[in-house]
């Protein structure tokens, strides 16, 4: 392998790693916001459970979308937008 190719592969792997970590963190924060949006009150056990069911379903999908759709970081931006909406709802409800 040429040095140029090795460098390109290393850069690609580094970018992928950073993107994977960012996707995981972003998806986790959104999943938690989702639970809080659905169950704003601490004593609403049923709503908390519904929120958790939806969040556990969405979390892996969000990670795959945020990481997989890489062109111009469309996945990260899309998932981030969902996060902003979730945070906005949380602020409104609060």
């Amino acid at each position: 392998m040429t040095t140029d190719r090795i460098e390109r592969v290393a850069r690609l792997n580094r970018n992928r790693l950073v993107c994977a970590v960012a996707a995981c963190l972003m998806a986790y924060v959104i999943a938690r916001l989702l639970v809080r949006d659905i169950a704003p009150m601490p004593d609403a056990t049923d709503l908390i459970h519904i929120g958790q069911m939806i969040a556990v379903f969405c979390l892996p999908v969000m990670i795959v979308v945020a990481f997989g759709v890489w062109r111009r970081h469309a996945g990260l931006i899309g998932v981030g937008t969902c996060g902003c909406i979730a945070a906005g709802i949380w602020v409104l409800v609060a």
């Binding site: 999943a31 938690r32 639970v35 809080r36 169950a39 704003p40 009150m41 601490p42 609403a44 709503l47 908390i48 929120g51 958790q52 069911m53 969040a55 556990v56 379903f57």
Partner: peptide, 18 residues
């Protein structure tokens, strides 16, 4: 995997307060 994460979701995705 889904049921396993869900039954312990109070630790990873807790409801309010955080």
């Amino acid at each position: 995997a889904y049921t396993g994460v869900l039954v312990k979701a109070d630790m990873t995705l807790p409801g309010p307060p955080f």
